[in-house]
Structures are given as structure tokens and as C-alpha cells.
């Protein structure tokens, strides 16, 4: 924006529009870093007609380059760690991370397993934790709403 040399007011206006659009169409990327599939199918169930997360504008997006939110499920395995970081780095800023399920939050039952690095926030900064084994779709929606409310309040604006 700065390169366009816009007046201050315009810049504010553009930022407002950007935030508005981000809150109304948060595209999410799902990464399974070693989960048992339980959280993954519940996340998917959340997107299907009964729960319909899409009514909040949330769309599951295949490419990290177009995603705003990274939804991580499962403990981070040693092999997945590097991939998880790579996916995170490919996402444009500002970006947010949701740790979904007991394993992503704490390592769950897989704490201490030899191929497990640990919970997600040992690898990435996490914004919202959704506990449960697996979390119910209602809990997933609640986590998403909490993240969007934080965005609305401007608490989570990170440097671009």
C-alpha cells in the first residue's frame, strides 16, 4: 500500500475493507500432522449441511497460498513437522492457527511416543485451542467464532 503513496485516510479505508473481507470470508487450510482422523472427519462434518460452517464464510481451501487460517489436527510427528512449517510459511500474512483436538492442544494420548514431536504450539504460534477428543462440531464452530471475534476486535492484527 505504501508504495502507492496514498493519503493516510485512504490507507485506513483500505485496511478497514481488508479486515471486513477477512472476517467475512476466512479461508481455512486443514493440515493433519499425525492425527487419528477423528478430528479430521469432525472438521469435515462441520462443513457439511447439518452444521454448515460455510455460512460464516469459512471455506476449506486446498492451497496454503490462499488460506488465512491453518487448522491443525493431531500431535506433530517428526516427519510431518517440516511439512507443517513449510505449509505455514507458504501462507500469506496475517495468518492464524487453530489447534484442533486434544492431541494438537497437548499431545493427547500420544505424548512420549518416539515419533511424536509434541503439541502444535511447540512448532507454530497458536491462536485458538479447541479441546476435545475429538471436539464436537459445535466446539469447532465456537473456536472459529472466537477467532473471528478476536479479528473483529483487532486484537490479533499481526505485522504483515
Amino acid at each position: 500500500m505504501n508504495t502507492l503513496n496514498l493519503p493516510e485516510r485512504w490507507r485506513d479505508a483500505v485496511e478497514t475493507v481488508k479486515r471486513w473481507s477477512r472476517i467475512n470470508s476466512p479461508w481455512a487450510l486443514h493440515f493433519n500432522s499425525g492425527s487419528c482422523n477423528g478430528c479430521d472427519i469432525e472438521l469435515l462434518a462441520t462443513l457439511t449441511p447439518r452444521f454448515d460452517l460455510e455460512r460464516l464464510g469459512v471455506k476449506l481451501q486446498a492451497s496454503p497460498r490462499q488460506a488465512d487460517i491453518l487448522i491443525c489436527t493431531g500431535p506433530v510427528t517428526r516427519l510431518a513437522r517440516e511439512r507443517l512449517l513449510r505449509v505455514y510459511e507458504q501462507m500469506p500474512s496475517p495468518k492464524y492457527v487453530i489447534a484442533l483436538g486434544a492431541c494438537a492442544v497437548s499431545g493427547g494420548v500420544f505424548q512420549g511416543c518416539y515419533n511424536v514431536v509434541g503439541r502444535v504450539d511447540a512448532v507454530l504460534p497458536v491462536d485458538v485451542y479447541v479441546p476435545g477428543c475429538p471436539p464436537r462440531p459445535e466446539a469447532i464452530i465456537d473456536g472459529m467464532v472466537k477467532l473471528l471475534a478476536q479479528l473483529q476486535a483487532g486484537e490479533k492484527e499481526k505485522p504483515g
Binding site: 499425525g34 516427519l79 494420548v109 500420544f110 512420549g112 511416543c113
Partner: peptide, 24 residues
């Protein structure tokens, strides 16, 4: 990528704990 080492972990837990681990 999802290999957690469950077959080793079950050897370090008792029979009842393993039930819940294997479920996962």
C-alpha cells in the same frame, strides 16, 4: 506422516490403558 509409534507405546502401558490408545 501419521506414524506415532503406537505399537511401541502399547508396550509401555497396561492392558486397560492400551484399549484407549489402540482405539485412537
Amino acid at each position: 506422516y501419521a506414524h506415532r509409534g503406537i505399537e511401541k507405546a502399547v508396550e509401555q502401558r497396561n492392558w486397560v490403558q492400551d484399549l484407549y490408545l489402540l482405539e485412537r
